[in-house]
Design a binder for these strands. Structure first.
Lengths: 174, 174
DNA sequence: TGCAATGTAAAACGATCGTTTTACATTGCG
DNA sequence: CGCAATGTAAAACGATCGTTTTACATTGCA
C-alpha cells in the first residue's frame, strides 16, 4: 500500500472522529506510521492533506451512490452509516471548522456538493422518467437531513428519510 | 448589559463564524471588551463558555419555533436563516469539533436535540390532531436537512423542505 | 474613611501547534 | 560500485494555545 494512500486513510479516520483542527500532526504521522518529514514531502501541509482526504472520500461516496432509484439512494446511505458510522457530513464540518477560509478545503467541499446535487438530479430523472428539479431539491434535503439527524437518532433517521422520499416520489408520479 | 451576556453573545458570533477550536481566547476577550481574568472569573473555561453559548442559543431557538403548525415551523426556519445566516447546526458542529469528548458541550447538545425533537412531536400533534411519531421523525429530518443544505443551497433548501413537509402532512391526513 | 468587590492591563505559565531542519539509514538502479 | 532517491528519528523553529498570576485602578457600601 502506497505511503500517500495509507496516510490519507489514517487521516480520514482521525479527522472524522476528532475533528480537523483538534487532530495534531503527531497523531497523523503516528497513525500512518511515517515521519513528519515524509508527510510534508508528500502532501505539503495539513490543509492539503485534508483536501486529499475530502477528494478521496468524495470518490468513495459517489461510487456508493451510483444507483438508479431514489430508494436505492437511501439504501446506500443506510449502508454508509452502518459501515462508516454517523458523525455528520465531513465536508460541511471541515468547511465550518475553518470558517470557509481555507481555499483548498472550501474548493473540495464545493466540488463534492455540486457533484452530489447533480447525481441526485440524475437519479430522480431516471426513477421518475423525467427531470424534476423541485423533487431533486427535496431529496437532497432529505439525504442531508438523514445524514445529520442520524448523529443523534441513529439509523432510524435514514429510514424516516427513505419513507418520506417514497411518498414524495409517488406524489410526483401522479 | 451584563458582562456575562455580552461575553456570551460575542462568543456565539465568533464560534459560529470561525469554529469553536479556531477561536482563541484573545479574540473572545477582545470582542467582549473584557480582560481574560474577568472572563475566567465568570465562566471558568472555554468549554464552559461554549456550553453557555449553546444553552442561550437553545433558548432563543426554541422561542422561535414555538408554533402550532408544521408550515410555521419551516417559516420560522426561514426567518432564522435570514436573520442568523446558515452555517449549519452549531450544536452538531461543536459536538463534532470536540469529538463528543467534552462533557459540558456534549450534554448541552443532547439537551437541545431532545428538546427539539419533543417540540416537533408536539407541533405535529397539534397540526394533525393526533400524535404521529413517524411523521414527526420525517419532519425532524426535513428540518435538519434544510439547515444543512442551506449552507450551500441557501434559502431554497428551506423552501424545498417546507413544500415536502406539506406533502407529507397532507398524506398523513388522508 | 476604609474595606471588599470587581474590574483592567500585561506578563508569564507550560504545553502544544504546524512546519522545517539536521543527521543518518536503507534501497534500487545506472 | 556509487549515486540518487526515499525513508526515519529527533531536535528545533517561532507562534499560539488555554489558563493563571501579579500588580494596580475603580467603585459602592458600611
Amino acid at each position: 500500500m502506497n505511503v500517500t494512500s495509507k496516510l490519507t486513510a489514517a487521516a480520514e479516520r482521525l479527522f472524522d472522529r476528532h475533528g480537523y483542527i483538534a487532530t495534531g500532526m503527531d497523531r497523523l504521522t503516528e497513525a500512518a506510521g511515517i515521519s513528519s518529514r515524509t508527510l510534508y514531502k508528500h502532501v505539503g501541509s495539513k490543509a492539503a492533506l485534508m483536501a486529499r482526504v475530502l477528494t478521496e472520500r468524495d470518490r468513495r461516496f459517489m461510487a456508493r451512490i451510483d444507483v438508479r432509484t431514489i430508494d436505492a439512494l437511501f439504501a446506500a446511505l443506510e449502508d454508509w452509516v452502518r459501515v462508516e458510522g454517523c458523525r455528520g457530513c465531513l465536508f460541511l464540518r471541515s468547511r465550518a471548522e475553518t470558517g470557509g477560509d481555507t481555499p483548498e478545503i472550501a474548493e473540495a467541499v464545493a466540488l463534492h456538493k455540486d457533484a452530489f446535487h447533480e447525481r441526485v438530479g440524475e437519479v430522480v430523472a431516471m426513477d421518475l422518467g423525467r427531470e424534476d428539479p423541485a423533487l431533486a431539491a427535496q431529496v437532497v434535503v432529505l439525504f442531508e437531513g438523514a445524514t445529520h439527524a442520524a448523529v443523534y437518532r441513529g439509523a432510524d433517521a435514514v429510514s424516516a428519510a427513505r419513507a418520506a422520499a417514497a411518498v414524495l416520489l409517488e406524489r410526483a408520479r401522479a
